[in-house]
């Protein structure tokens, strides 16, 4: 891949700021044509279906527009003010942030732990790995519908609880406004833990066996090896997973929409379901666009800050230094 050579090359030069970059200004018609020839179709699709809609949404967000007729009622930042003063939208932001934090605090450690266990020689390891990954492969809508049926009042899950003598724990899993958020978080964890574990397992493959051998020769226990060698070396994987998890949590939609629709009484509303509700169901496309822009900006700020402060060292090829 050409990009990786370029990155590696610039990293070398960055380490030596005094020397000016060698200038290769040879105008090579053939390679320029080739670059544009290959990039143009993808670029056209990207600009048409990603950049243009984003810009259009930003434009719509300054209008009071129901999706019909011309855009002629410019209202400045009223849509933004309305969104940011609406308790329901603030609750949606809170729910998103709560899911970000809970995912990092709960899913991360569990995934690392399971991956460490599965990385050891174990009978039926392949089968266990496959089973753990199955929920992630399932379509989100299918999974949500299945859980909706399983968790209905006196449904299969309650029957299961009763059969093992825990009938007292029965709840209105999806109908109780104080319980439903945790139900949602459990289903999300069930769905995405497999992905996290798979990432961690892949990261573990990159840790050289020699380090373990050297450590055990030095008399390190299994715990010490995990604590001082495996986990630090897993750093880049953990940081990338955390990034994907945060963005996914901020833009959470499908699972909530199908499982609870954001309810009951907005108990599980997220920014994306709020946007869908206002933009499409209440046909306030201008207001919905403002919500979309806010969601976009929050995700962007998260992504940029994270890249700047957390991922930077990975981009600099600091895997060795991290250890």
């Amino acid at each position: 891949m050409s990009t990786s050579t370029i990155t590696a090359g610039s990293a070398v030069h960055a380490a030596d700021p005094v020397r000016p970059r060698p200038r290769k200004r040879r105008f090579d018609v053939k390679s320029v044509a080739m670059i544009w020839g290959f990039a143009a179709p993808a670029l056209v699709v990207y600009v048409t279906f990603v950049i243009v809609p984003v810009v259009l949404a930003a434009v719509y967000s300054f209008f009071n527009w129901n999706g019909l007729g011309p855009l002629d009622r410019f209202i400045g930042i009223d849509n933004y003010v309305r969104a940011l003063t609406d308790p329901t939208f603030l609750k949606a932001i809170g729910n998103n942030l709560a899911i970000v934090v809970l995912s990092l605090l709960i899913q991360g450690p569990v995934a690392i732990g399971v991956a460490l266990l599965l990385n050891r020689p174990l009978r039926g390891r392949t089968l266990i790995r496959t089973l753990i990954f199955v929920p992630y492969v399932l379509s989100e809508v299918v999974a949500a519908l299945a859980f909706k049926l399983i968790l209905q009042p006196n449904g299969p899950f309650d029957a299961f609880l009763e059969s093992i003598g825990l009938g007292g724990l029965k709840q209105l899993w999806l109908a109780d406004q104080n319980v439903v958020f945790w139900t949602l978080f459990f289903v999300l964890s069930w769905k995405y833990l497999g992905f996290a574990i798979l990432l961690m397992l892949a990261g573990l493959q990159g840790v050289p066996d020699e380090l373990f051998e050297a450590a055990s020769i030095d008399g390190a226990s299994w715990w010490q090896i995990q604590r001082h060698i495996t986990i630090p070396l897993l750093g880049p994987t953990i940081r990338i997973w955390a990034f994907l998890s945060m963005i996914g949590s901020l833009q959470l939609f499908d699972m909530v929409w199908v499982l609870t629709g954001g309810g009951p009484v907005n108990a599980t509303v997220t920014m994306a379901t709020y946007m869908m509700q206002y933009g499409f169901q209440r046909s306030q496309l201008g207001f919905g666009s403002a919500v979309a822009v806010i969601l976009f900006l929050i995700s962007l700020v998260f992504a940029l800050l994270y890249q700047r402060h957390v991922l930077r060292r990975d981009f600099e090829g600091a895997v060795g230094r991290g250890a």
Binding site: Q251, A272, M275, A292
Partner: peptide
């Protein structure tokens, strides 16, 4: 994952 959900909605609208 729900990456690029907004843009996807936009894209679907544009495609339609």
């Amino acid at each position: 994952m729900n990456k690029a959900r907004i843009t996807r909605v936009g894209a679907v609208a544009a495609a339609t």
